[in-house]
Design a protein around this nucleic acid. Structure first.
Lengths: 358, 358
DNA sequence: GGAGGGGATGACAGCGCTTACAAAGGGGCT
DNA sequence: AGCCCCTTTGTAAGCGCTGTCATCCCCTCC
């Protein structure tokens, strides 16, 4: 291969800059990368020449020579769901300022059949990995750890791995306690998957739920815990199942806003009014929660992503940093979907949620 | 630098595979990449050896030698908004099967101050570019074209550039015609930005809106066109502004579901009921539209992304393919937020005097 | 004034692939 | 039998950087 003429249309190389600036390629490399031990005058000169020639470094060459991949992978099961897109946004914002490329890998639902296992693709391709909300016991993740790359987990945590998440136990407790405080005693739960996954948000939220109930001397009833799979439809089905019980709950904590939205729809379909007939608390702080007047536990998803990205960048700078699990606070936003138990009337059957004016 | 011992911990190289398989590195390269003119037996053998050694090609080396960047950039202004995250998901799904890396670049709102202009970062770094929903007149995009890379636009179109989008004129017409058919005569519009952008969805939707009105002999009233900036809040403000008019519209077409959601909230805040008092049509097919009983023009966002990715892959395969503008169909979903004008009661005044439920 | 030190620069050998080109072998065909 | 062509394989020259090492030069200090 090879065009021996370096000035060809293909592109300006470091050699062209070196020649033009009257220095060696090594000096150009050092000057442009901000390395120490370069005369400020030389550096300025080189920079100016590079600019004038419109020189752009060849990432491939640089990577090959330096052994660094120059990019980091972001692995997420979903792209179009609230939490994941928010986190990704935060990550991107930070990474954009670094000179690392952001390689996006979506795995799809962990339960699905995989297309290409990420670790296979990641080898020699990235310097570090950011994982959004994948269960730690996922085989993919295990193989990822074996790649021996710096990893930061978002929304999950694991011993010996740096992570950024919220305090899900506290979040679950907060949501449930709110319902308890309103006088509710039969408090249902719309959880994620049927089988709990260790070290994963849903377990912690479940713990918080259980703790809040127990602390108030309430019974933790397995019948009142229905999986909603973190989707709107799932939430709707779960709520419908709750309502179908012989003794339905008077309040429900849904582990995500999207499931809570589904629950709201189920209520509407049953002619029930959120807050008055059944109280609902969500989890996330979805923009739509305000719209639907849903009480919810807000989590700073975008900040989680940004913080995780910063951690990873730091880790890349100084690999000796001990991994640590950082937490960001959550906050309860109380809205109309929760109310004192039996505040207005016992269950009645209005058609649609809209009340008359005073 | 340089460990001369290739079998070092650093990694297995093509040379190791070649030695182990008893062939030359060239043959290994050819065999592994599926190039023609390799004896099937040799190929199988090489593959087996490579597998056994757990060999992974070094992208950097491959890219440097071949001159291909091995990755494509996806540029999007937003990550966490419905349309963009859906499209991105579609793109990712297709690209995952290719051996190209997906580099994610979010520009933020085009009106914002930029961090790093994308084209600066893209040079020598990607083989092709996928642009989601950026106005064609954006300076960024212009400089992008000058990079002379294969480009595919999603949700916009431009002469000489391949693109994938919906028929926004038809979509706007469909939404508006629906309202006309229901007997509405004062039909408001919640648009995107105040100033129209050439070749951009909002202009086409606007055209569709105008066409539908004109075709039915209705007046196109500038006063009834309010920008909503494609956000919930923007939609709410816009709707509020519509209601504050001396002669408010009886129906409104919002150019996105998120703005329509905001409009719904504005209605609620004014004690008005969607469908009965004011009809609202959205645009997108957001999951939440079903929940909120919003009539909307559905667009297949994920399919748009997938199709665009396929186009770009094809273009990369065969650069001689003529750029073409592909379109995907939209579909009107009629729900409760639109109804025959004055079906229940004649139009009541927005501010006060709202009657109770039947 | 000479030795020693340190900052600035240059020379150059790779990094691990790809690919033109050359070479070798194996038929089919005349 | 000899020729030609095609398939398969090997050889080796880069791709455009980085990093080590050597060199040079200017200062400082004794």
């Amino acid at each position: 291969m090879a065009t021996s003429d370096a000035t060809a249309v293909i592109g300006i190389t470091i050699r062209d800059v070196a020649r033009e600036a009257g220095v060696s390629t090594a000096t150009v490399s050092r000057a442009l990368r901000g390395l120490p031990n370069v005369d400020p005058v030389t550096r300025e000169h080189v920079k100016r020449v590079a600019d004038r020639l419109d020189y752009v470094i060849s990432p491939a060459a640089s990577r090959l020579a330096s052994g660094r991949a120059g990019s980091i992978a972001v692995i997420t099961p979903f792209l179009a769901r609230w939490y994941f897109s928010k986190v990704l946004h935060g990550v991107e914002r930070i990474l954009q300022r670094s000179d690392l490329d952001l390689l996006l890998y979506s795995t799809g639902d962990p339960s699905e059949v995989h297309r290409v296992p990420p670790h296979r693709r990641l080898r020699r391709r990235v310097d570090a990995v950011l994982v959004i909300g994948l269960p730690v016991d996922s085989p993919d993740l295990q193989e990822l750890f074996e790649l021996d790359l710096p990893v930061t987990l978002i929304g999950a945590h694991s011993a010996g791995v740096s992570s950024v998440s919220i305090d899900d136990v506290e979040g679950g407790r907060m949501a449930t306690q709110h319902l308890v405080n309103l006088g509710h005693e039969r408090i249902g739960l719309i959880s994620g998957r049927p089988l709990p996954t260790p070290f994963f948000p849903e377990n912690d939220r479940l713990s918080g739920y259980q703790q809040a109930l127990s602390a108030s001397g309430l019974v933790v009833d397995q019948q009142l815990q229905v999986p909603g799979f973190f989707t709107i439809e799932g939430g709707e089905h779960a709520m419908t199942a709750q309502l179908a019980q012989p003794k339905p709950p008077t309040a429900v904590f849904a582990m995500s806003d999207e499931m809570a939205f589904g629950a709201l729809r189920a209520l509407r379909r049953h002619g029930l009014q959120p807050g008055r007939d059944v109280s609902i608390v969500g989890f996330d702080g979805h923009e739509m929660a305000d719209l639907l007047d849903l009480t919810t536990v807000c989590q700073p998803a975008e900040d989680l992503g940004a913080l995780a990205a910063r951690c990873l960048l730091d880790l890349l700078d100084d690999p000796s940093i001990e991994p640590q699990a950082k937490r960001l606070p959550t906050q309860l936003y109380v809205r109309g979907s929760t109310a004192i138990r039996g505040a207005a009337h016992p269950v009645s059957l209005p058609r649609h949620g809209n009340d008359a004016k005073p």
